[in-house]
Simulated assay, not measured.
Amino acid sequence: MANFREKVVLVTGASSGIGEATAIKLAEHGARLFLVALEEDKLQIVQQKCEEKGLVKEKIGYCSGDLSQSAFREEIVRNLIQKFGRLDILADIAGYVMFSNVSETKEEDYDRFVNVNQKAKFFLAQLCLPYLKETKGNIIFMSSIRSTIPEPKVVVYCMAKIAIDMLTKCLAKELGPHGVRVNAINPGFIDDTNILRNSALKATDEDQKKYADMSAKQAHLKRAGKPEDVVSLLLFLASDEASYITGSINNIDGGFHLYP
């Protein structure tokens, strides 16, 4: 059984979906949490849910803002260390999807997307490295099966995710001698998240159901994924039970990657 009691975990994208589910499950395991997302009111709701799982308020901190801004990333780490004095695990889950092919993509949208979904992960990890080396902690990056399965209508998303895979491998090699592990999780479509609703599609509940049904047909396990599926893998990789696993890219997609 994974033991996270008193471990300090930084969770980005913690206000909904996989990030929210990760925070709540870690609260059940007694971890000390520092939660990050764009909207403070949603973080406060997640904080309350964590408290309902038995985690006392003093063991939860949060910071709301735009991860693409270097000053905000510095604020996150500064506030986390001031509150807890250490960092054991970085679970960098934040991100969104951009629907656009090459011919339709505007440069300003490209820059914004890369700043949030690629650059921010690189430099937030950089800020966390000194503290992770002290604790011999680990990093979990949220990537996607689209890092290896091309889809023209989300080309920039595909590009950013393969960059995260390579960041995972390079950082694992760099940090291995320090006892720090780095792994990536590459989900397929995960239902019960806001990734489609928060995209330019502004997906409705009906749209969400259509994507979930289509995903279930494409997956060999014949169902759409749930946040809890991803969280189970994340907790294993972040735990001491995975102490000899680093630099791994882990598909969790019901077998979708086996197509065609």
Rank of each mutant, 00 (worst) to 15 (best):
M1K: 15
A2V: 08
N3K: 04
V8P: 01
V11R: 00
T12Y: 04
T12W: 05
G13S: 13
A14P: 11
S16E: 09
G17P: 01
G19Y: 14
T22Q: 01
A23P: 02
I24R: 02
I24A: 05
A27S: 15
E28N: 15
L33T: 06
F34N: 06
L35G: 02
L35F: 06
E40R: 08
L43C: 01
L43H: 00
L43M: 00
Q44I: 02
Q47G: 04
Q47N: 05
Q48E: 00
C50K: 05
E51Q: 14
E52K: 07
K53E: 05
K53T: 03
K57N: 12
Y62R: 00
N79L: 15
Q82K: 02
R86H: 07
L87R: 00
D88K: 01
D88P: 01
I89G: 03
L90T: 00
A91Y: 01
D92L: 08
G95A: 07
V97A: 02
F99H: 11
S103I: 09
E104G: 04
E104V: 05
D109K: 11
Y110Q: 09
R112S: 14
F113D: 01
V114H: 06
N115G: 13
N115A: 14
V116A: 10
V116N: 08
K121T: 11
F123Y: 14
Q126Y: 06
P130Q: 01
E134P: 09
K136L: 11
S144H: 01
S147C: 06
S147H: 04
I149Q: 06
P150H: 10
P150G: 10
K153F: 07
K153E: 11
Y157F: 09
M159F: 09
M159W: 03
A160M: 12
A160Y: 12
A163P: 05
A163C: 10
I164D: 06
L167C: 03
C170L: 11
L171M: 07
K173T: 06
L175I: 13
P177G: 02
R181H: 07
R181A: 09
I185N: 07
I185W: 07
N186L: 04
P187C: 06
P187S: 08
P187A: 03
F189V: 09
T193R: 02
N194V: 06
N194R: 10
N194T: 07
I195A: 03
L196D: 00
N198W: 06
N198F: 09
N198Q: 14
S199E: 08
L201K: 07
K202I: 05
A203M: 04
T204S: 10
D207F: 13
D213K: 12
M214S: 12
A216P: 13
Q218N: 10
K222G: 11
A224K: 14
G225N: 11
D229G: 12
V230Y: 07
L233T: 13
L234V: 11
F236M: 14
F236T: 13
L237C: 08
L237M: 10
A238H: 02
E241T: 13
A242L: 14
T246L: 07
G247D: 05
I249L: 15
D253N: 12
G254M: 04
G255D: 11
F256Y: 15
Y259P: 01
